[in-house]
Design a protein around this nucleic acid. Structure first.
Lengths: 227, 227
DNA sequence: TATAATAATTGTAATTTGTACTTTTATTAT
DNA sequence: ATAATAAAAGTACAAATTACAATTATTATA
């Protein structure tokens, strides 16, 4: 029905972030197809005929990690005509937050993928380095006001782990006493009676995030800030 | 070089927002091509062969408004296979903030376009209503922490006009005394010695936004919030 | 010409939140 | 029993927010 103008392939690339042993990490893959076969790349796919970008991203995430129910959010669409030497391809970048423990527990993950610490990333192909930088900038913006830390922490976590996530993300130390006062001042962090004793003799309580309480608060509260 | 998978047209649609007489408005157009010719639509275009989405959006903004140097930011890419009855088209939505006075002063704007108050919008084609809602949600998020009010206010504005923008955007009244204290506490609003007397007998001073001062502050200040 | 009216602007006092610390607590290894 | 440790709670001061009241500059009208 439309006249012939530019028609291009659509790719979806995923910036997959998780935290392990207090370090933020990115999941990348050895690119399985030319051009630049076997170079480090974000995990991506081409959009299918009857698919949304969101579905395509979930599809590739499942094939790469064996996980469903991953936090996934569209980030930005990259359109530079020369961004891919293999031809004109537009890429819709998404970012995904993963609980790395779940990833490791899952056997059906793709071979050739690897977690790298953010401060030890290899050079990635195309404009993927840009995508990672943009994603991290957005993550930093978003984590100030949105409860996304809980998407990559385990379901049960200590306040120290939560604090550590922010310290990693912003490369900045926060006062522990004040941090816990701040996050506990909202009611959506629910204390359990379980303790973990791997980092201290006293042991620290596990908390969980209650999404419903958060959303109710959010609906009436104009200003919620995590740090 | 790549195998044959889905190739689609890429559109760019612009959510063009401005403020006039204290009311937020959206610029839309009577769609000039089928399908749904002559129905109200966002202003858009198809992406050209050697163009980025950003360039295409600027191109169509210029043809619609006669203005260059418009604040333009990519929002979200819409990919539902059935979103356009004319065929599979992916749309990269942008939002643009315009000084309506500049628009009116410019003679080379496109005919068939019209400003509608946000609370009086006509039904738009395709998923354009969704795009507008998403854009406004993002604008509300962004205006809390980013100096985008100054993109649609005139270069010189009164504090009351600034306050009015926020009151319109959030549909909520703010205390005038506290609002001015808040925004003046940062140093990037520069008072001029000009007064306008159209709304009061005393007259109110005009201010301007100093981007450099803002950016310097931003680089060292973790928390800047406008309201 | 004095005065009432109006919105802009400034001021103030009470409350809340943020910040930098100190102290106490629960537990384990010695 | 005690030293060591990190978690958790407390404290006191500073800064920001909030809800108002008071003052100012100007113009229209008496």
């Amino acid at each position: 029905m439309y006249p012939q103008v530019l028609k291009t392939l659509i790719a979806t690339d995923c910036i997959i972030v998780g935290i392990e042993e207090g370090t933020l990490k990115l999941l990348v893959i050895k690119r399985p197809i030319p051009p630049l076969k076997d170079r480090w790349s974000l995990i991506g796919t081409f959009l299918g005929i009857e698919e949304t970008a969101h579905q395509a991203a979930h599809r590739v995430l499942y094939s790469a990690t064996g996980l469903n129910n991953i936090y996934l959010d569209q980030l930005h669409t990259y359109t530079r005509p020369d961004r891919d030497p293999g031809g004109r391809v537009i890429s819709i970048a998404h970012f995904a937050l993963i609980r790395i423990a779940d990833y490791h527990n899952n056997s059906s993950k793709q071979v050739g993928s690897k977690w790298f610490a953010l401060n030890d990333l290899p050079k990635l192909i195309f404009d993927h380095d840009n995508m990672v930088n943009d994603a991290l900038a957005k993550l930093r913006e978003r984590a100030k006001f949105n409860p996304i830390a809980f998407e990559l922490l385990s379901e049960y976590f200590t306040l120290k782990q939560l604090q550590n996530f922010y310290e990693e993300l912003y490369q900045q130390k926060f006062d522990t006493a004040n941090f816990r006062k701040k996050v506990l001042s909202y009611s959506f962090l629910v204390k359990t009676n379980k303790k973990v004793k791997d980092t201290s003799k006293k042991g620290s309580f596990l908390y969980r995030y209650d999404r419903k309480i958060y959303e109710e608060l959010r609906s009436k509260e104009f200003k919620i800030r995590f740090i």
